[in-house]
């Protein structure tokens, strides 16, 4: 039996009277490619923000690999193994591609090095820098960004910026990868390439992936299971093909037949 990677129990948050997310119960198995879909304003990104510690949930709990992470700080959650990308790309624009990846390696225990060791250029500093650079190059190579490693992140074409965001998230060595609308603003070719990248990440890194997406072709193409959110609540969940044909889901997206 596959083991559970992420489990949320009645996870919810309200801003004043507005219940942005309510009773979200996700169960994602190890190695799953799980989709989180829903109309605009359904609370999908809110769920991501809850899972990464940007917001603290007002109700419910969530567990990663059996460990409760509710109420932890963002950097702690990241170290425990949840990494994410953003809906509107948030790269470190004034840094080179390789530096972007190296920033993500910063907090890993194997690259620990005190600021004073760096300030006084102790041997530890050089050792760590070299290890980080090698690891970053390795990752960039995997994601096909090796050629661009010394360009500024803001000068990359859009599709590659998305790719870099995924590479950067992967650098933090996560167990669960959250992708927030990875295909937003992409043309069909880029979307197809992205689907390959996502599948590649899942297979080669043995990763569990939860993704938000509006592009139903992408969701139908790669997600095995989906949960549909509407007005902060779960509307349906299950196998992708069944859920996408559920009349309630279709109503939520395109409205009722008059």
């Amino acid at each position: 039996m596959s083991e559970v990677m992420l489990r949320t129990e009645n996870l919810g948050i309200s801003f004043g009277g507005l219940k942005a997310a309510q009773d979200v119960n996700l169960t994602i198995n190890k190695g799953d490619l799980y989709g989180l879909i829903g109309p605009n304003g359904a609370g999908k990104t809110t769920v991501f923000n809850l899972l990464t510690g940007v917001y603290q949930p007002t109700t419910g709990k969530f567990f990663l690999d059996g460990e409760e992470l509710t109420g932890k700080k963002q950097e702690i959650i990241n170290r425990k193994g949840i990494a994410r990308t953003f809906q509107n790309i948030r790269l470190f624009n004034n840094m080179t591609v390789i530096s972007n990846v190296m920033v993500a390696l910063n907090n890993l225990p194997e690259y620990k090095c005190s600021p004073f060791a760096s300030m006084f250029r102790l041997p530890k500093h050089f050792e760590t820098e070299k290890k980080m650079r090698d690891r970053a190059k390795e990752l960039l190579d995997i994601f096909g960004l090796k050629e661009e490693r010394n360009t500024l992140a803001c000068n990359l074409p859009y599709g590659k910026q998305r790719k870099l965001e995924i590479a950067r998230a992967m650098a933090t060595n996560p167990k669960l990868l959250l992708l927030d609308e990875p295909a937003a603003g992409m043309n069909p070719n880029e979307t197809a390439e992205l689907m390959n990248t996502i599948r590649f990440v899942r297979d080669n890194f043995d990763m569990t992936i939860l993704l938000i997406e509006h592009d139903m072709k992408l969701v139908g193409g790669i997600c095995e299971k989906v949960t549909v959110l509407n007005f902060g609540q779960e509307l349906a969940k299950g196998n992708t093909a069944e859920v996408l044909n559920d009349p309630r889901v279709i109503t939520a997206y395109i409205g009722e037949d008059e």
Binding site: R84, R90, Y111
Partner: peptide, 23 residues
Amino acid sequence: SKHGRAITAIRDNEIAAKAMGIN
């Protein structure tokens, strides 16, 4: 150094820096 990179990352995008595990 890696710390300088983290510092510039905070300047460039604090939200992303936090999400990447920067303290």
